[in-house]
Design a protein around this nucleic acid. Sequence first.
DNA 1: TGTACATCAGTGAACGCGCGTTCACTGATGTAC
DNA 2: TGTACATCAGTGAACGCGCGTTCACTGATGTAC
Lengths: 211, 211
Amino acid sequence: MDEGRPRYHHGDLRAALLAAAEAELTATGVEGFSLRAVAKRAGVSHAAPAHHFGDTPGLLTALAAEGFGRLLACQTRRERQAPVDPASQVIATGLGYVDFALSHPALFRLMFASDRPDHEAPDLRAAGGAAIGHLAEQMAAAGGTVRHDKIVTPDMAAAWAIVHGLATLIGQGQMASLRDRAPDDRDAVLAGIIARVLPRTPGGADPEPRR
Amino acid sequence: MDEGRPRYHHGDLRAALLAAAEAELTATGVEGFSLRAVAKRAGVSHAAPAHHFGDTPGLLTALAAEGFGRLLACQTRRERQAPVDPASQVIATGLGYVDFALSHPALFRLMFASDRPDHEAPDLRAAGGAAIGHLAEQMAAAGGTVRHDKIVTPDMAAAWAIVHGLATLIGQGQMASLRDRAPDDRDAVLAGIIARVLPRTPGGADPEPRR
DNA sequence: TGTACATCAGTGAACGCGCGTTCACTGATGTAC
DNA sequence: TGTACATCAGTGAACGCGCGTTCACTGATGTAC
């Protein structure tokens, strides 16, 4: 396949630039991010990215959208490993959300705490809506009240906030003692915390014992 | 006091620069923040800030530290307005935390989601520790298990995460329907959500009715 | 009260740098016939 | 199967801009005597 030989046409520069952008983001942070550095990292002239993404916000918007796709994938991966009862499932969704933030802290920050991507872009909105909408569906399945029409119910706000708060704080190293625990141990603690905000069905037991 | 007349020495340029920096932060965001723009906004030559803050990270570090002081003040203001029982008090602390994030979204982001301040600087660490430590004390008073020696307990992680998650998501406009409610109405919803994570004392009732 | 002097705060010109953007170009690819 | 040509992807030099930093300076303030 002529792997080693440099070719004039890259083949899949778009994907290569996204990968380079993520690496650059991890190395430099959102705030120092530049298109030139990404092009250099991808081994390409600094004018090349314009053909695929237009400008810096365009590249960051595409990267953020890809991030939301991976956030959703992290959620569903966890769900597959969990018991099938609705409470376990929504807890798994939350653990997947935290997984993503811990594995990709810079990307997570780009997606949720940066003005540089265009958050109104249809692709990004759709990807974000899919990931968060999935959490809402899981919460609804666990007995929560979750209306979709732009109204955030207490059940949904509680679930999203607890999961997002944990993901943000742990991902940023603000809860180092929790971050550095063995994964299984950490997951048990996180599951117990997430369980606190789940709706308790009238006749049912708590989804997780308290203390 | 010769107010209108421009003087060579400013009087309190340090404070004026901090105010200008906050305004600039609100207008431009952390990512486009520059020392020259701050100096221009304060009506001073662009080399002047160096006398007070050294460089850009120095200024942003001071601003973030001031932010934590105000975060703490928002917490205690709410506590003074709340009933004195421990559960009401810790909920008030949380509401104050959210108040701060809603009133100063750009500053909140600087404090928690930016690499530009030097988060290892003693002043900033102290200010941050005071604000978060206060939340921990309130949680402990409400019956939570909260050790201070760098260990985050589930009680503390839950309280911090729910409050931080709400503050972050609402402050960024991700929960617009909640943000745009009448303040009293919003507070009632938030109080109910925060109450979900409070420890339930063995013989005691829930601090807040569910649903 | 007055004078001399050190210190401090702020000025403004100059610098070098990395950035995004533009543009004429060139090499590769795909398609029509 | 071969040829011509349009289209596309990537190059590299050039540009103007705002940035942080440096530096000799100057105006104001405070203090010693």
